[in-house]
Design a protein around this nucleic acid. Structure first.
Length: 292
DNA sequence: CAGTGGCCCTGTCTGC
DNA sequence: TGCAGACAGGGCCACT
């Protein structure tokens, strides 16, 4: 379940393994993997072949690699979805079961493979937002900066958060408000801040909002330092290696286990067709609201 | 316009 | 053993 730290690990891998290399050949093995390419797989392949890859960039959970060689302003953009992997593999390694896209390079070295079991992720070649010095692809111009971005505006975020008429976990997962936070790190940030996931954002005090942001930033920074979170082989870096943060999680996936702060059993609640993990003692349910 | 919720997708696990 | 259903869940988009 790649969130910001996991995607950043992949970005670094791409920056060190594929930057500066020229694409010799592209294979799309599953059309759904390039469904965001409006003109289809043939167009994707044509736009990519012969280009030279630049240094991978990231915003939230999106990655993009600027392309040079056949004109400017285009990037290879990717999202890993839930189960996507970008692997840098020796050509002799047998194809993975869920291999969706393969890029071979002119140097004949290790190839780039997009592997995705559930195909929620995907790749596309896309033009940059007009006049954007960072070369942000058009389709992700609406994605907010993430808390590890030096240009993230803390004051603007906390003000926008408190102005929202929604609940706090929903807001954390809203990628137009703050990007890179998924279910795992949302639960972790809420646990650290002692906030219940259904707490109305409008009731947050300024210090609570600031602490929530600091907690999200802290937990993702800590996860990044140990290579991200992974529970199984579904999430790996470009070399197929797992991160170690799962052992440091305080809430997510810890149903029935004692809260590391107060000892109360962590509870799992059904929420928005997924799960929320929280400590029922540290993170009290908000008072009932009238209306929606 | 802002907020809400259905849907996409497949492998793994559990229960009958 | 086989089958059905729950579950994992980010982001898009139709709807209110």
């Amino acid at each position: 379940m790649p969130e910001l730290p996991e995607v950043e690990v992949v970005r670094r891998g791409l920056a060190s393994w594929v930057a500066g290399r020229t694409v010799a050949d592209v294979q799309v093995l599953h059309p759904r993997a390039v469904r965001r390419q409006p003109a289809g797989a043939g167009d994707f392949t044509a736009r990519l072949t012969g280009t030279t890859l630049g240094t991978a960039q990231r915003r939230g959970k999106y990655l993009w690699v600027p392309l040079a060689g056949t004109g400017t302003g285009f990037s290879l953009i990717g999202h890993l979805g839930m189960s996507g992997q970008l692997l840098v593999q020796d050509p002799s390694v047998p194809d993975e079961t869920h291999l969706r896209v393969r890029l071979r390079f002119a140097d004949g070295g290790r190839e780039l493979r997009f592997v995705d079991q559930r195909t929620f992720g995907g790749l596309a070649v896309e033009e940059a937002e007009d006049g954007d010095p960072e070369g942000t692809p058009v389709s992700i111009a609406h994605i907010a900066r993430d808390p590890l971005d030096p240009r993230f505006d803390d004051e603007a975020f906390t003000a926008a958060l408190r102005a929202k008429r929604t609940t706090v976990k929903r807001a954390l997962l809203d990628q137009t408000l703050i990007s890179g936070v998924g279910n795992i790190y949302a639960d972790e940030a809420l646990w650290r801040t002692k906030l219940h996931y259904d707490r109305p954002t409008a009731t947050l005090t300024r210090p609570q909002a600031a602490l929530l942001l600091a907690s999200a930033r802290d937990v993702m920074t800590a996860a990044l330092a140990v290579g991200g979170t992974s529970f199984d082989s579904l999430y790996v870096n470009v070399n197929g290696e797992s991160g170690y943060f799962s052992r440091d999680l305080d809430a997510y996936g810890r149903e029935h286990e004692p809260c590391r702060r107060c000892g109360t059993a962590i509870r799992r609640a059904a929420w928005m067709n997924r799960s929320s993990y929280f400590c029922p003692r540290c993170q009290r349910v908000p008072r009932a609201r009238s209306g929606g």
